[in-house]
Design a binder for these strands. Structure first.
Length: 419
RNA sequence: GUGAGCGUAGCUCAGGUGGUUAGAGCAUCAGGUUGUGGCCCUGAGGGUCGUGGGUUCAAGUCCCAUCGCUCACCCCA
């Protein structure tokens, strides 16, 4: 049997309503902040991600689905959306059409990682990017939109973590201080953390090893090394979050894994999704546009994992969807009335009613059972003596009540079903 | 890339110490009299017991390999 590839899955009809619900909510909330949707291709030139995300990151180093096409070009299935959006922003000179571009997206992403609870190789993210302003108001707007979407889904067990990485110079200063601090403790660190020491020392803070965390207890604080501007912005962010009544924790250990982040970073986590607890993450990336060949432009954004969010919703039982219903199931009492039923269904479907009927020649009982299973509001019997008199028998499925309707008075039927 | 657990009908699972035609519930389909649902009753279909090899007179049940799934590490949404 041919099965879906490891780490991918089908979204089946019985779970699609949850996705519609989430997608509608996303579009509605982003729209209320006047963000416009952008769609980019699923694949891009590999170099976009290598340059944008950073050669040293795990995503680029070992998780990308890259392939060479017949023209010999190296292409990659997008592992994240910020680089493609920025590429598009530069390519189409969106910055010269308006000062600030507020964009959002909903899209599949691809990363070749070992699947796990809340993690797949093809997964879906929604997110937003505000390109063209350095105002911390936009930093907060990102958190606000993400938080509002999660809250609207009924999620309760959320916590917002924020941090500031400062401008690159400030961060570099801090890195060398941290390096000094850990130099004589290096051999006590875990194996993974020793690797991080050389590759990306900030990530040592991510370690789940208690021994590492003990060694870090007295480490210098990143926030103490912030430049004046970053510090001021970060205070602004906190003040604005308080105005919005969004609870948050400053977490100096929150270090994002993508190279492009500057200043504010944030994450919203839920304890209801297993160990992959980050539902969304983002931050400011003031250097990226220039780095990808555009004019130096400040920007901020976030991305959220939709499978994780849906998983959290399921585990918290945060919302319930109404059962699927159809308006009318048409039952034919005689087999030779197929054409009449077919035409009637067609006419009513033109009026935007959800209509179904039996495609084989099943018994009336079987058709009734089907109507019941489909949660039909009404059943219409076509055939029998009343049909010879030009009448149809309409049944209200909730009450069981029946009523006759003239075959030439479809308007009456429409009127009843419209209620 | 590393580690652990698990693989029996569409789904959830039973199948002491290996022994005749592998079971249940749910789901599906058909019936329960003449043209009518949800409950109930009856019946039917559906499984190379993940795959391959080995031990044995005999394996779903033991051993090995392999594939797949799940969870965790790593990393990230």
């Amino acid at each position: 049997m041919i099965k879906a590839v490891t780490g991918t899955k089908d979204i089946l009809p019985d779970e699609i309503n949850g996705w519609y619900y989430l997608e509608n909510l996303i579009r509605q909330i982003f729209s209320s902040f006047n963000y416009k949707e952008i769609r980019t291709p699923v694949f891009e030139e590999t170099i976009l991600f290598a340059r944008g995300i950073g050669e040293e990151t795990d995503i680029v180093g070992k998780e990308m689905y890259s392939f060479t096409d017949r023209g010999g070009e190296s292409l990659t299935l997008k592992p994240e959306m910020t680089a493609p959006v920025v590429r598009s922003y530069i390519e189409h000179s969106l910055g010269s059409k308006q000062q600030l571009n507020k964009l959002f997206y909903i899209s599949p992403m691809f990363r070749q990682e070992r699947p796990q609870a809340g993690r797949f190789r093809q997964f879906h993210q929604f997110g937003a990017e505000a390109i063209g302003s350095s105002s911390p108001i936009l930093d907060v707007e990102m958190i606000q939109m993400a938080y509002q979407i999660l809250k609207s889904l009924g999620l309760k067990d959320l916590s917002v973590k924020i941090n500031s990485l400062g401008i690159p110079e400030a961060r570099d200063n801090y890195k060398s201080e941290l390096k000094k601090f850990l130099a004589d403790k290096k051999d006590k660190l875990s194996e993974d953390s020793r690797k991080r020491f050389d590759k990306n020392i900030l990530r040592i803070f991510d370690s789940k090893m208690e021994s590492d965390q003990e060694l870090l207890a007295d480490a210098p604080h990143l926030l103490d090394y912030l430049d004046a501007e970053s510090k001021n912005d970060f205070e602004q962010v906190q003040a604005l979050l308080k105005i919005l009544d969004i609870p948050f924790d400053v977490d100096a250990k929150l270090v994002r894994g993508l190279d492009y982040y500057t200043k504010t970073t944030f994450e919203i986590i839920s304890s209801k999704v297993g160990s992959q607890s980050a539902l969304c993450g983002g931050g400011r990336y003031d250097m990226l546009i220039e780095q990808l060949g555009g004019k130096a432009t400040p920007a901020v954004g976030f991305a959220a994992g939709m499978e994780r969010i849906l998983l959290a919703c399921e585990n918290e039982n945060s919302f319930t969807l109404p059962d699927d219903k159809i308006d009318l199931y048409i039952i034919r009492l005689e087999k030779d009335l197929l054409h009449n039923v077919f035409k009637l269904a067609s006419d009513l479907r033109d009026q935007n009613f959800v209509i179904d009927f039996d495609y084989s020649d099943r018994s009336v009982k079987a058709q009734m059972r089907e109507a019941n299973k489909l949660n039909a509001r009404f059943v219409l019997f076509v055939g029998g003596d009343e049909y010879k008199d030009g009448l149809l028998n309409l049944k209200y499925m909730d009450s069981g009540q029946q009523q006759l309707i003239a075959l030439n008075d479809i308007e009456a039927l429409i009127k009843i079903m419209s209620k």
